[in-house]
């Protein structure tokens, strides 16, 4: 397979992972106006948990779902018990999530040491598939397929269910949503847990080829930030487009200009901020 094709496949796969990470981030931010600074930590902790479960011979998909459930529980608890008490105080909420990000980082370092862990790709996902005369690594394709499936599921959830209608109402105007009787507070816990679960699931999906190591959390967090700045807050379509855009820029940037990979990531963000500060698919708030 040519270099370009490899890069393209890796880009799409990273885009898929970024979507798992940033869709939840975007929904949480859109709905609750909290930039959840422990979102990268959910990704990393989820990945570590997945690694631990895989090491015990547990099936890959069960491990991923179990990690997601654990993250949902942790995220939901933090939201319910601590963030809730700070409702309306944005800065303390942000700092609280940052505090937890540090704690999670240090606990992971304590439990899993500073060495990187890279679980083997599960047997049934190894190998390559032939498409149109070209061979693609199966695992990357599976990552993309899962991301697309989750994107469709989220879209159905947000656009076609009653819960989704409440989320949309909350994103557009939380005070009004409250007035018309939507129980915003329960919605917050639910969306926070869902976002954490998606991040944790993404962490396990990413572990076989990103590997897991200390600092992964704060490497993923700014990527999620940039995706959301690009795509627009609270927009799933924006998160999807932004994720793949960043996936491509990151992989091609790292391959072609390794020194400047971060600068290349930075440029589209600058352009968007200057030309269209609400993001590609964001709504203008007044």
């Amino acid at each position: 397979m040519s270099l370009w094709l490899t890069l393209a496949v890796n880009s799409v796969a990273l885009g898929g992972l970024l979507f798992l990470l940033s869709s939840g981030f975007s929904l949480i931010f859109g709905l609750m106006r909290i930039p959840n600074l422990m979102h990268g930590s959910f990704f990393m902790l989820g990945a570590y948990l997945g690694v631990a479960l895989l090491a015990r011979g547990i099936n890959f998909w069960i491990a991923a779902l179990a990690s997601a459930a654990a993250m949902a529980l942790i995220g939901g608890l933090i939201e319910r018990v601590l963030l809730r008490r700070l409702e309306g105080q944005v800065l303390p909420q942000v700092l609280l999530t940052l505090g937890f990000a540090f704690i999670i980082a240090d606990v992971c370092l304590m439990l899993w040491t500073g060495d990187p862990w890279q679980p083997a790709t599960p047997d049934h996902l190894r190998g390559a598939v032939q498409v149109a005369g070209l061979y693609f690594p199966l695992y990357r394709l599976v990552v993309v397929a899962v991301a697309v499936a989750i994107a469709i599921a989220l879209w159905l959830l947000v656009d076609w269910t009653r819960l989704g209608a409440m989320i949309r109402a909350g994103v557009d105007d939380a005070p009004i949503a409250r007035v018309v009787g939507i129980r915003v507070s329960q919605l917050f816990t639910l969306v926070f847990a869902l976002g954490a679960a998606l991040a944790g699931f993404g962490g396990v999906m990413g572990a076989p080829y990103l590997s897991v190591y200390p600092g992964l959390d704060f490497e993923m967090l700014p990527l999620a930030l940039i995706v959301v700045i690009l795509g627009g807050v609270g927009s799933l379509l924006g998160a999807l487009v932004g994720s793949f855009l960043i996936g491509f820029l990151y992989n091609f940037g790292t391959a072609l200009l390794p020194d400047l990979a971060y600068v290349i990531l930075f440029l589209p963000m600058v352009l968007i901020l200057v030309l269209r500060p609400q993001g590609l698919f964001g709504k203008v708030t007044t």
Binding site: V94, P222, L225, A261, Y262, V263, F266
Partner: peptide
């Protein structure tokens, strides 16, 4: 507000990334 915080965080991480990656 929160947007300012996010953008400064992203910019800071980019500077960190340059310090870390641009070894030359």
């Amino acid at each position: 507000g929160v947007g300012f915080l996010m953008i400064t965080l992203a910019l800071g991480q980019i500077v960190w990334g340059i310090a870390y990656r641009w070894a030359g």
